[in-house]
Structure formats: C-alpha cells, structure tokens
Computed example of a mutant assay.
Amino acid sequence: MSRAVLVLENGQVFAGQSFGAVGQTLGEAVFCTAMTGYQETLTDPSYHRQIVVATAPQIGNTGWNTEDDESHGGKIWVAGYAVRNPTRRVSNWRATTSLEDKLVEQGVVGIAGIDTRALVRVLREHGSMRAGVFSGDALSDTDELLARVKSQPTMAGADLAGEVSTDAGYVIESDGPARFTVAALDLGIKTNTPRMFAQRGIRAHVLPSSTSLDAIKDLKVDGVFLSNGPGDPATADATVELTKQVLGEGIPLFGICFGNQILGRALGRGTYKMKFGHRGINIPVIDSATGKVSITAQNHGFALEGEAGEEFDTDFGRARVSHVCANDGVVEGVELLSGQAFSVQYHPEAAAGPHDAAYLFDKFATLLEGTRA
C-alpha cells in the first residue's frame, strides 16, 4: 500500500494507505452504519458522487461475488471508499475476487488505515461535506488538495438521476405467468427491485428517467414505480411533473427513497438537505397508523418536510405522512388516503437485509389487483 490522505472541506486531513485504485477522487463524504453488505452498498446507484466511510471496522471478509451487485451491469457507483481495516484474506465460498481487486478493476480510489470513528464523529457534528481521497501522483501539499476539494459542486442542487439511469428500457419478466405489468422509472434502480416484483408475478419495464407519460401508456401498464436514486430531489422537476400526470390518470403508483421525495413533491411538499442523512441497515421506522416499528435499510441525504401522521390537501385528494423515523422524526413515507399512491423513504427491497418492509411489494400488488377489479 502507498500513502493516501482524505481531505475534508473544513480542512481536516486523515492520513492512511491507498486502498483500491491509486489516484484522486472527489465527492461528498458520508458514512454508512451497515455491518454487512458492502458489495450492495458500493454498487447502489444512490451513492453516485459520494465517498462512503464504513463504520464497521473490518471490511472485505467475504470478498466479491457475481450475484450481489445492486447496479445493472455490476458497476461500482461510489466515488470513493474509506475503511479502517481491510481484511487480508477472503473467506467465502461465493467469492470470485477480493474487494480491493474489484476496486482496482473499476478504478475506484479508496483509503484504509484511518480512524473512521473520528471521521464519523466529524461528519455527525458538522454534517456531510465535500471531500477528496488522494494517493500516488495525485498527492500534493494540503492547501492544494483542499483547493481541489472545494472546487467541486455541492450535493445540494445536484441533478444526478439522469446520470445513473438506463439509456434504453429493458424488461424483467415475472416468475411464472405475469399477473400485472409495471413501468419502473429508473432513477437509480437497484437490481433487487425488479426481482421483488418478479416474485409476485409482476413484469417490470425498467425505463429511462426521461420517459414520457405517452410512452408509459403505450406499454398498457397496470402501475408505475418510482425508484431510488442520487442527487437533490429539488432538481427533478420533469419527474415530478410526470408523477403528477400519472396521478391525474388514476394509475396506481409506488415509490421508494428518491421516489418518495418525488411523490411528496408532486403532492405539494418541500424537500431539504439533511445534516448527515440516514445510511445503514438498522434504522427504525414507525408506521403512523399502527405504531408498528420496522427495522429498515436506508440511504438518503434529503428528506420531505412534514410531521408524523400529518394530513394535508393535494391536487389529487387528501394525503398524509404515513411513516417517520423513530430516531429523529424524519418523514419516511407519504400516501394518498384514496390508496392510489404511496411511497416510503427506506428500502423494502433491501438485498443485504433487513426484510421487515418487504410486505410493501405485496401491498402494491394488492393495489394493482383492486384497481384492475
């Protein structure tokens, strides 16, 4: 390993060794509290343009396999990776290569051997911020590296969904005969989402983020799905307008993560950037109607405005805040009281677990069945 440094925009520097590719990467520094599932994290398109700091101290034990990628084509989307102690040996029968070899193969610059606990405390106290990881020929004096970090745009105002969306539509067939067909708008969709649809007899047309209502109607779909994705939801005006058109047509709609923010905006709610966001697989969410708590996987740095159980008027009928985070009260779901549309901020498709919220796919299937009837 060669020398590497991570530089935050507040001027703090963390020195360690290179991990993965050698060079320079810039992005927003964020932390993920998941103890497992690093492959799913690194390939999640929602992490586009972010340097992920792993809070789990040892990373890489299970290597890398060909089955757990969450991006179409197996692309690693994180801008960089910061870890405390990369494992020296891969120990899993499914592994086809090591984590570091995969980072090198895809040119992902990382850093190891830093005090990730101290780094996470900085991000918790001061918020997620612009950062850079530098090694090899990219190394320079601190003032120069800090200038490079500050030269990059902030995540607020970043329009990124189009950068991670598919260029052309494709179809994931249902397991067995298709009961329903859904248009899944790819704003950064994870591969397990169409798989969850398929298990319930739903054929998914995965479509580019720029798809029009006419193109969706031409497919004669039973419902529309808005996927997760990166960036600032305040920039997604075209997708919000499409969502309004879908609601106006009376087509059933289900959204997750970025899709929750899009539906919320279509219903008239504002969004804001969180201090350090929710990223992990152990985050408790309360269902406002029942009080039931689900442990969820999450990855978001923006959120909808609102309060637990709040009801409000929209152009499409009454709506309410359906879920909130038990930790901080952040809005975790909205829905139309008519039942036509609902969304959650967390990830019910969570491939690395937990699976408490998988029932939401069944809820959507029931909605499609009731609408058709």
Results as ranks from 00 to 15, higher is better:
Ala79Met: 05
Gln298Arg: 15
His347Gln: 10
Ile111Phe: 11
Met155Gly: 10
Thr181Glu: 13
Ser212Leu: 12
Asp237Thr: 05
Arg318Ala: 02
Phe316Pro: 03
Thr290Leu: 05
Ala326Glu: 15
Asn299Lys: 11
Gly306Asp: 06
Leu185Cys: 10
Gly136Met: 15
Asp237Leu: 06
Ser18Trp: 01
Tyr170Gly: 09
Asp159Thr: 05
Gly309Leu: 12
Leu185Glu: 06
Leu42Ile: 08
Pro354Asp: 00
Gly280Phe: 14
Met155Val: 11
Val324Arg: 03
Gly169Trp: 05
Gly127Cys: 00
Arg89Gly: 01
Phe312Glu: 13
Ser212Cys: 07
Leu160Lys: 05
Gly157Asn: 01
Glu249Ala: 09
Ala297Arg: 15
Lys244Ala: 06
Glu335Pro: 07
Phe364Arg: 02
Leu242Lys: 14
Ala54Glu: 13
Leu99Val: 09
Pro230His: 07
Ala215Asp: 00
Leu160Tyr: 11
Ser151Thr: 04
Cys325Ser: 15
Ala266Trp: 15
Ala183Ser: 12
Thr243Ser: 01
Asp222Thr: 00
Phe361Gly: 01
Gly157Phe: 00
Gly74Thr: 08
Ser210Trp: 12
Ala54Val: 12
Thr33Asp: 12
Ala156Met: 03
Gly132Ala: 10
Pro153Ala: 11
Val104Met: 13
Arg279Val: 07
Ser288Thr: 04
Val334Lys: 13
Met196Gly: 10
Met35Ile: 03
Arg320Thr: 05
Gly255Glu: 02
Arg203Trp: 06
Gly306Gln: 11
His278Asn: 15
Gly110His: 01
Tyr346Lys: 03
Arg148Tyr: 09
Met196Pro: 06
Ala15Gln: 09
Val246Asp: 00
Glu332Ile: 01
Arg200Asn: 03
Gln345Lys: 02
Thr142His: 14
Arg3Thr: 08
Arg179Ile: 05
Thr243Ile: 09
Leu336Asp: 08
Ala357Tyr: 14
Gly110Arg: 00
Gly113Ala: 01
Leu263Val: 05
Asn10Gly: 12
Thr239Phe: 10
Pro57Thr: 02
Leu267Ala: 09
Pro57Gly: 05
Phe316Gln: 03
Met155Gln: 08
Leu185Gln: 08
Leu213His: 04
Trp64Arg: 04
Tyr359Met: 09
Ser338Gly: 06
Val52Lys: 04
Leu304Glu: 09
